[in-house]
């Protein structure tokens, strides 16, 4: 069992749901990223998703794109991110996964990346540009290291294909709420609940919903049908605010607390 499997076994036994905040590594620096990770978990985040900045993030909206650009402009390197995570993750009571482009994983070396992620105490990977058809090689490498390889299902995924994705995804399956890029949205598609409901009947894997989620109302609406919810741009935007670090840390912490209050 990976750390994520253990987390969901525990949450399910307690009848609880997960909240997974996303943050960009190195925006504005890795010291702050580590501080935010600790704050998020102290506030009750069940797991954390760390975005590895990438130069060409096709699936990301303006907020996360801009955070990646800022981090890369400051010269953040994969080696330093993994070092920071290796120091921070073992201190956290919540699993940490990286959201990372296959361009980066491939360049670093698929086995090397997974070795280093496992050594850093990470629980898994989300590779947003590696659809299920291209993922068997990475999945095998992850499995051998007890890392979860979390795959995505979207509103455009045909149902037969969704079943195939559920068979190969490990840890949980990431249900993308909207056909589109990441970013806060006020309204979520009306068919979302039915689609997740259908998926719920097809798989025992935990289902976490992400993309667009930013308000306690979203959390209230979706937590009954999901095992967990993922919040990204709303956090990245707060981390990038023009304010002192202590202030931003408190803002992000309070924001996550407001979502957690709506969760259970």
């Amino acid at each position: 069992m990976s750390a994520i499997d253990e987390l969901f076994a525990k949450l399910r036994a307690a009848g609880r749901k997960a909240l997974m905040p996303f943050l960009t590594a190195g925006d504005p620096d890795l010291e702050f990223t580590a501080a935010v990770l600790k704050e998020l978990v102290a506030r009750g985040a069940s797991m954390c998703e760390v975005g590895i900045p990438y130069s060409d993030p096709i699936a990301d909206g303006p907020v996360i794109q801009a955070s990646y650009t800022r981090a890369l402009d400051k010269g953040v390197k994969l080696r330093d991110i993994l070092t920071m995570l290796g120091e921070t993750a073992p201190q956290l009571s919540a699993p940490v996964v990286t959201m990372v482009s296959y361009a980066i994983v491939y360049r670093h070396g698929v086995e090397k990346y997974c070795d280093e992620a496992a050594a850093a105490g990470l629980a898994g990977l989300i590779v947003p540009d590696l659809p299920v058809d291209e993922s068997p090689a990475l999945a095998a490498v992850c499995a051998a290291r007890n890392l979860s390889l979390i795959q995505l299902i979207t509103p455009t995924t045909p149902r037969e294909r969704a079943l195939k994705i559920c068979e190969t995804s490990t840890g949980f399956v990431y249900y993308v709420s909207v056909a589109g890029i990441t970013g806060e949205r006020t309204a979520l598609p009306p068919e979302l609940i039915d689609n997740v409901g259908w998926l719920r009947e097809q798989t025992k894997l935990p289902i976490c919903i992400g993309f667009g989620i930013s308000q306690p109302e979203h959390v209230k609406l979706l937590s009954p049908v999901a095992d967990g919810l993922i919040v990204g741009s709303a956090i990245v935007r707060r981390m990038a605010a023009d304010a002192p670090r202590e202030q931003k840390l408190t803002d992000v912490g309070e924001y996550v607390a407001s979502l957690l209050a709506a969760l259970d």
Binding site: Y102, P131, T154, T157, V176
Partner: peptide, 11 residues
């Protein structure tokens, strides 16, 4: 190959 977000696979 095809290294794209799942959303585009259908198209």
């Amino acid at each position: 190959g095809r290294y794209v977000p799942e959303t585009l696979v259908y198209a």
